[in-house]
Design a protein around this nucleic acid. Structure first.
Lengths: 218, 218
DNA sequence: CCCGTATATTACCCATGGGTAATAAAAAGT
DNA sequence: ACTTTTTATTACCCATGGGTAATATACGGG
């Protein structure tokens, strides 16, 4: 199948460009990386890149999209999966934390959407909103079904997302912690203060008679 | 006092440049802001800026330094102040969160140190290390003196710092929450899962018989 | 009132780097 | 083998923007 093999080779090269670009963008920052740098690391020359992408910012966007795709996937999986809101929240934290330890995950936090075209910025904003909504939904649902203590979903979602996004800034593969270890510690720790009852093996056993924190907006 | 008034005027102008630069850098991102943009907003021309600064990256550095100065101040104040480790941690979270809602605070997280000279990058790294060490110290001290549940100080410090730093990315003054409100919610929420006993009015009343979370590295 | 100093402006330099011909080399198709 | 289509290269364009030289203007001091 000549057509297919041709296409595959092309797509593989495209992906190779993206993998290299992500690395460089993360290492040095988008603006300090030139297309010559990217090409050089691939042992080709700059104009060759334009066979696969129309512009530098399109490369950036595709890098981002690769990471976002994964997030959308596990969000769908968790959302359609079982468990109460707290369980889903833990799953989400775990998966998101692990994603943050990867290159494509870190791109989601460390790239600046303002480097993209207006249209792509809209796409990015929409995606970020989707993630945020999911966190807030699980929190709100959890408060409703009693698995989570009363809290302001918006603010709590920000607190959790902040911890997780930060992973993309400090985590390095050669460190003392594996991605999974970090993720499970975060899943446990970030929900410790939220769980209403000592649920499952994760729970930190918050007293049932806890005075419910005065939640809601001030 | 001619000499003094002259100097004061100069310093005021310098600060005006920095205030304007910070705003623009935060609004549009360092690389998208030209020195012409900065000058224009001050109703002067680009070369006039060079009376006060030697280069664009020096402006960036001074912007950052303004924010860092404030952090160093309240860290010193809290460190020399009273209270056990948990109390100090809460104070630190509160102050740091409030700082993140300001322009100079947000600079600390949203500027990329790689835009600075190698020497200034060292200064920035040292400052970030100071902040990190302080968080870890309070956590470790708290575990030692019993006010905080066993936990890995390094990882927990990252989790807390992440939540706080993220404020610099989402907070906007015209929102529903005041800076102080956000800060106090974060101070409470981020220590809820850590406090060993229902201490003071903040405590979420964690049961004393809590199985101590298996802390330490995995 | 004049001089020296700081501060500002206009006009310019030029390295950088994204992007584009024009064209060569390599595959694919027949 | 010959043609056509991809893919890559060399050589170039040029807008951008940090930074500077020459010069004008305001200002405090004697």
């Amino acid at each position: 199948m000549p057509f297919e093999s041709r296409r595959r080779a092309r797509d593989e090269k495209r992906e190779a460009v993206l993998r290299t670009a992500v690395r460089l963008f993360l290492e040095q920052g988008y603006h300090r990386v030139t297309l010559n740098d990217v090409a050089e690391r691939l042992n080709i020359t700059k104009p060759a890149l334009y066979n696969y992408f129309r512009s530098k910012d399109e490369i950036l966007f595709e890098c981002w999209a690769l990471g976002q795709e994964i997030v959308d996937e596990f969000i769908a999986e968790i959302d359609n999966g079982g468990g109460n809101a707290l369980t889903k929240l833990r799953k989400l934290i775990q998966a998101y934390a692990e994603q943050m330890t990867t290159d494509s995950g870190a791109s989601l936090v460390r790239f600046d959407a303002r480097d993209l075209t207006a249209e792509n910025q809209k796409i990015v904003r929409a995606a970020k909103k989707r993630i945020d909504r999911t966190f807030r939904k699980y929190l709100a649902d959890g408060v409703a079904d009693g698995s989570i203590k009363p809290c302001d979903p918006k603010l709590t979602a920000f607190a959790i997302a902040g911890s997780l996004n930060w992973i993309g800034h400090w985590y390095q593969r050669d460190g003392a912690w594996s991605a999974e270890a970090v993720a499970s510690r975060f899943a446990a720790q970030l929900t410790e203060g939220l769980a209403k009852a000592p649920a499952s093996k994760h729970g930190p056993a918050t007293s049932k008679k806890s005075r419910p924190a005065k939640g809601g907006r001030k």
